[in-house]
Amino acid sequence: MLSAIAQGYFNSSSVLFYPIVALLLFLVSFTFITIRVLTSDKESIDATAALPLVDDLAPLSTKTKSGISS
């Protein structure tokens, strides 16, 4: 039955395998990334997640000369 469905599907146009390949590509990539992410190291994840919260020093008035000082 599956072969009949597939035959009917691909008889419509030879380029119809593109959507199928696309779906499979997505499925593989998505599963891959999901498993990878779920098994990743908690500490490094938390450290990266905290990056926006790192506080700057007190801001500098633009009237003061700006640049880099060591």
Binding site: L24, V28, F32, R36, V37, T39, D41, S44
Partner: peptide, 26 residues
């Protein structure tokens, strides 16, 4: 192609799970 992709995908999945933290995404 479909079979090849599935096999390759599974190999990568198993490898990545086996590696644990600090893998390629890091």
């Amino acid at each position: 192609i479909v079979i090849l992709m599935c096999v390759f995908g599974l190999v990568i999945l198993f490898q990545s799970v086996k590696q644990g933290g600090g893998g390629w995404h890091h």
